[in-house]
Amino acid sequence: MLEIRWHSRAGQGAVTGAKGLADVIAGTGKEVQAFAFYGSAKRGAAMTAYNRIDDQAILNHEKFMNPDYVLVIDPGLTYITDICANEKSSTKYIITTHLSKEELLAKKPDLAGKEVYVLDCIQISLDTLGKAIPNAPMLGAFIKVSGALELDFFLNAFKKVLGKKLPQKVIDANMVAIKRAYDEVK
Rank of each mutant, 00 (worst) to 15 (best):
M1H: 11
E3C: 03
W6V: 01
W6K: 02
S8L: 14
R9E: 04
A10C: 10
Q12E: 11
G17F: 10
A18E: 01
G20T: 03
V24E: 00
I25T: 01
A26K: 14
K30V: 08
F37W: 04
G39Y: 09
S40H: 09
A41W: 07
A46I: 02
M47R: 08
T48R: 14
T48P: 00
R52K: 08
H61E: 05
N66I: 13
D68I: 07
D68A: 08
V72A: 04
V72K: 01
T78R: 11
T78I: 10
D82M: 10
A85D: 13
K88S: 11
S90F: 15
S90E: 15
S90P: 01
K92L: 14
Y93W: 08
I95D: 08
K101I: 09
K101P: 00
E103R: 15
E103M: 15
L105Q: 10
L105V: 12
K108G: 03
L111K: 11
L111E: 03
G113D: 04
E115T: 14
E115K: 08
Y117G: 14
V118F: 05
L119M: 11
D120H: 09
D120S: 11
I124K: 02
I124C: 00
S125Q: 03
D127M: 04
L129R: 06
P137T: 12
K144M: 08
G147V: 01
A148T: 06
F153Q: 05
L155W: 09
A157G: 02
L166R: 00
P167H: 13
Q168G: 08
Q168Y: 04
K169L: 04
A177Q: 12
Y182K: 05
E184D: 15
E184P: 03
